[in-house]
Amino acid sequence: MIRTVFRSEALPPAERLAAFDDFLHTRDPPMRVTSTAPERFRATARARDLGPVHILELACSPSVLRRTTRLIHRSDPAVCAVVFPLRGTLTVSQTGHEALLRGQDFTFYDSSRPLRLRITGPEPTTLLRVHVPWTLLPLPARRADRLLGTRLPAQEGLGALLTHFLTDLAAEVCAYPAADETRVSAVALDLLAATLTHHLDGTLGPPPEPRDCELAGRIEAYVLEHVADPELTPRTVAAAHHISVSYLHRLFRTRETTVTELIRRGRLERARRDLADRRLRETPVHRIAARWGFRDHSAFTRAFRTAYGVPPREYRETRTE
């Protein structure tokens, strides 16, 4: 269920900007805000978490939100964010690009890079920001550089599907059962990944041979079928398909991921689903980790926290209450 997490009207006018700055500074990823008219500043923030998908709807007076190098060093969850205005105008600047967004436009940004979001007036702007861990997307962050801070259209196609779906999630006031929450977050991840890949098509070199596409698809299915095997590695995957490890890596360059990333994401997602399953509440976390191929519990905990923002035990507590 979406909930209000900040409301400036509850505070005296002179305290609103500083309170909102404190609020942003304690969020992950942390940011800072400045305004040329602090005495007239207003902001309301609503948030919703659907597994690894984090939604923030922000209605804010003209101001500038920044994520600096210092803030990145302080805390970086390594997330990909899609942002767009629901009302008003927003300018997003990152990696030398600047996107002026109004109406049906959106852009992406990376939490690991310095960022500026400028909300222009005279009326408040309402924006929607949704972020997910890069580890759950089918391409590494560095391959999306050319899209960061670039204005992208949302009038039709995948852009329209993505922004409409996310807008509906933010508007939905009821809570989902745990199983439906997992399904909805999976749809959001798929739409986000498909939109990123669509806008990168044609910029990453010649298309792969059909034979290579077919083989890579079979390998991906094989990996997901055997992801619980702790012995599953790129070397064993290559051997099972009678190809060299170097050829395996070349195949997956065209899919904007690596076999190692595919194995890790598959294991983490299955462990996450088990942790959210009330029927498995009494199963120790370390056994769930081992069930999905994680030999080292501390390594599993670190990987899970990086991917989903919370340790596995805390995630289970919030999903099986």
Rank of each mutant, 00 (worst) to 15 (best):
V5W: 06
V5T: 15
E15P: 06
R16N: 05
D28P: 14
M31W: 12
R32V: 14
R40T: 14
F41Q: 07
T44S: 12
V53L: 10
E57W: 05
E57C: 09
C60S: 15
V64R: 08
R66Y: 12
I72E: 04
I72C: 06
D76K: 05
D76W: 03
C80Y: 03
A81R: 01
V82Y: 01
V83Q: 04
T89K: 14
Q94G: 06
H97Y: 12
H97G: 08
F106W: 02
T107M: 08
T107P: 03
T107A: 11
T107I: 04
F108N: 01
D110T: 05
S111Y: 09
S112G: 15
L117W: 09
R118N: 13
V130D: 00
H131L: 11
P133F: 05
P138R: 09
P138T: 08
L139K: 08
A141S: 15
A141D: 12
R146L: 11
G149A: 09
G149Y: 01
L152H: 03
P153K: 03
G157V: 08
L158C: 07
L162N: 01
H164F: 08
F165H: 04
F165Q: 02
A170Y: 07
A170H: 05
E172L: 14
C174M: 15
Y176P: 01
E181N: 09
E181Y: 06
S185R: 01
V187H: 04
L189C: 07
L189M: 09
L191W: 06
L191E: 03
L192N: 00
L200S: 08
G202S: 13
P206W: 09
P208Y: 05
R211H: 10
E214P: 03
L224Q: 04
R235G: 10
T236C: 06
T236K: 03
V245L: 09
H249E: 09
R264D: 05
R265G: 00
R278Q: 12
I288N: 01
R291T: 14
W292Q: 00
W292K: 00
R295Q: 11
D296C: 12
F300Q: 01
T301G: 04
F304R: 00
R305L: 11
V310L: 02
P312F: 02
E317Q: 15
T318D: 10
T318P: 07
E321V: 11
